[in-house]
Simulated assay, not measured.
Amino acid sequence: MSLKLYLPAIVLAFAMVFFIFDIISDVLSNEDGFLHLSLELMVFMAISLVLFHELQHVKSLNKVIIIEKSKTARLAGELLQVMKEQFAKWQLTPSECEVSLLLIKGLSMKEIAEARQVKEKTVRGQATAIYAKANCAGRHELAAYFIEDLMREV
């Protein structure tokens, strides 16, 4: 887990340790009065309660993070499935499907050619065929086709 999530709890834990040692040293030295010890003990108890609350909050945040990661993964898988189904409707070849995904991801023609170990000219030809079959002017319209629905307010 991220240190940022636990930083307040760590600070509170150090404050608790400080107050424990201070209370123990005050009791052993018999130099401080009852009021001073009572005040330090109340501060220690307050810090303990806040620390407990903070740890519960971090625990609940971790649960939310796990749920959201799961939703994101599911939605990404669903989007990929929707894309593949649309590619089939457009009658893209397997190579064109692969190039389409890479175009939508934002890779350049050169990067796609390197990743697929083909010439850049081949990728450009496939991209032109994809745009024609999808009735899109370019990669921006191709990507917009799939993300348009995701951006609508529910």
Rank of each mutant, 00 (worst) to 15 (best):
A143Y: 08
N62C: 14
Q117C: 12
S48T: 06
E96L: 05
N135Q: 06
F21R: 03
G106S: 05
T122C: 01
E85D: 13
E120G: 06
E40A: 01
L75V: 02
D22A: 05
K119L: 03
T122M: 00
V154K: 08
P8Y: 00
L41W: 01
H36C: 10
C136F: 07
G125D: 08
I23G: 00
H57I: 12
V154R: 05
K69Q: 11
E120Q: 06
F87C: 09
Q81I: 13
E31I: 09
A13E: 15
A15F: 08
S60R: 03
R139V: 15
K89S: 12
K119M: 08
Y131H: 11
M1E: 09
M16R: 04
S100E: 10
L55N: 09
A88Y: 12
I112F: 03
A76M: 02
L51E: 03
D26P: 00
V99M: 02
L55T: 12
V82R: 09
E54M: 03
V50P: 00
I130D: 07
H140S: 13
V50R: 02
D22T: 03
L12H: 10
E148N: 10
F44H: 00
K89R: 07
A15L: 11
T93Y: 03
L12M: 08
L7T: 15
A144G: 14
A113E: 05
I65H: 10
I47M: 03
I112W: 05
H140W: 13
P94L: 06
A144Y: 04
K84F: 03
R152I: 10
Q56C: 07
Y145C: 10
L142P: 15
Q126R: 05
K119N: 13
L5V: 00
E78I: 11
S95V: 14
F18D: 13
L150A: 01
I104M: 12
V123I: 13
E31D: 14
Q126G: 15
N30M: 10
F87P: 05
E78M: 09
A46H: 08
K84R: 07
G77F: 06
I147M: 02
M16W: 04
F18E: 15
H36E: 14
L102V: 03
L35H: 01
S38Y: 01
Q126K: 03
T93E: 04
L12I: 05
H53Q: 14
A13H: 12
Q56S: 12
V58C: 09
F18W: 13
P8H: 01
F87W: 05
L150S: 01
Y6E: 02
R124I: 10
L28A: 07
A144M: 06
N30K: 07
C97A: 11
E111Q: 14
I65F: 10
N135G: 14
I23Q: 00
K121F: 14
M16K: 04
L12N: 04
C97L: 04
A46N: 09
A88S: 15
K119V: 13
K69C: 09
K59F: 09
N30V: 07
Q126I: 11
V43D: 00
E141A: 06
E111R: 05
P8M: 01
L80V: 11
H53R: 06
F34Q: 01
S60G: 08
E96W: 05
G33N: 13
L55I: 11
Q117N: 12
Q81F: 15
L80S: 11
L41Y: 01
L92S: 11
V123R: 01
